[in-house]
Design a protein around this nucleic acid. Structure first.
Lengths: 240, 240
DNA sequence: CGGAACATTGACCCATGTCAAGTGTCGTGG
DNA sequence: CCACGACACTTGACATGGGTCAATGTTCCG
């Protein structure tokens, strides 16, 4: 992330907290092991995994589904700071209490790891602390990219960056980088990119009209002209 | 941070990466020790400490002065993602290459720690890894708060949040929470908050006209009515 | 004292927000 | 299988906050 995809100021959709796949040569990987044996929890769409102020007693790994992480202002305005997909860890980095909310956006299965177990694992495996550090560093880098996007880019640029991030994730996972399903609503996308539902919707329509994407269903996106989209993402908005 | 100042969705101006002051009872603190013996480097205002793509061979601690950390888009738009003040560490979390730029905004002294030394210290002091992890976690939390601010708040709310963050920092440091010097230009503030120079300037003027702040010099701010400012920061903008 | 950099202010404009109808789409119950 | 209601999404008309462009003021340093 940030090193991926040329020098493209890549926006990362996912916190991407998955630890490096444990090197197979290692005899024992306490954390991965503990995690694998952790309890499985199911949450329905819209159900909260944790909310601001909750004791941060577990770290979760998303097994299936998707989770939105967000903060809210007193008057209800909401900023989604990331989406977690299968393989991503959520709840890391909280000391004592959670300072944000985690809400499933579709039926989701989570692997639960008690904080106490995490601490034990860190004690057993000194390199784990460094791995957690690296995981947070990646998360921080993607957060900064998102800042760059919401702070400086136009609505079109933001939406296109968002779509291209999906494309990259699919490519990374060996799936079709030109077609994907959006697990979140327009409202979620808006609250992630700092736009309104209407602006997100209009931007999708504009991109479709321009022949750059197709929308077979409102939640399904097909990228038709990725190069043109990459051009749009960076600021040469004169292309329109 | 995030827990500080009531439930106020506090924005953190500084990366605030200073490690916990080493507990005095500990016999030897390799990292603090190594850092204390690290080379001192002076940089002038506007001089770069590192730029995107540089090998990440050092971590720096700001001793005096101030540094802006930012990313840029191909067309030059700039997003400042944080300011580093005395006590803050910069350059942490980079793997291999820096993915952002660090530029002094005033004459600055930096303590340099080679990455190799950092790795050695981590090996000697297992708890150091966890401290670095915590430092990044704090940084991540402040980044998310900034996201909430730039993604959801109005220009006035952003500027007021920014000023209140200075007030909090001064209070934390035992200095006057109602008066401070801004080390950065209006352009820097704009690029941090996702606003233009003109909007920042107009907002300062508006707050002065409203009697909430005074501006003896353009770089000096005096907060007159902190409670009103706190009200403005949260969204009850009807106060105007 | 002069000039460069920074800051303020004004006039205007436009991208995006707001408000208000519609139009799918999906799941449930008759 | 169809009808209905609830949501999500789209689209249109209009309003406005903040951006842009341009002129002027201020500060600071050589």
């Amino acid at each position: 992330m940030g090193l991926d995809e040329a020098k493209e100021p890549a926006m990362q959709t996912s916190p991407h907290l998955a630890l490096q796949p444990a090197v197979s040569a290692r005899p024992l990987i306490p954390f991965e092991q503990t995690l694998a044996s952790g309890a499985l929890k199911r949450v329905e769409a819209k159900e909260f995994v944790f909310v601001e102020g909750d004791a941060a007693s577990y770290v979760y790994r998303v097994e299936t589904g998707a989770v939105a992480l967000f903060k809210v202002l007193a008057d209800g305005r909401r900023q989604i700071v990331g989406f977690a997909y299968p393989g991503d860890l959520i709840g890391l980095g909280a000391e004592g209490e959670h300072v944000m909310n985690a809400q499933a956006i579709k039926p989701t299965r989570l692997r639960c790891l008690p904080m106490s177990g995490l601490h034990r694992s860190v004690a057993q495996d000194p390199s784990l602390g460094f791995k957690l550090y690296q995981a947070l560093a990646r998360e921080l880098a993607s957060m900064r990219d998102l800042m760059l996007t919401t702070g400086q880019r136009s609505a079109t640029e933001r939406v296109v960056s968002f779509l291209l991030a999906f494309s990259r994730r699919n490519k990374r996972n060996g799936q079709d980088p030109t077609a994907f399903e959006l697990p979140m609503t327009r409202a979620d996308i808006g609250d992630f990119l700092g736009l309104t539902i209407e602006t997100v919707s209009r931007t999708f329509t504009k991109l479709r009209t321009m022949g750059l994407i197709e929308l077979p269903r409102s939640s399904q996106v097909k990228l038709i002209d990725i190069d043109a989209l990459k051009g749009l993402a960076d600021g040469d908005d004169q292309v329109l």
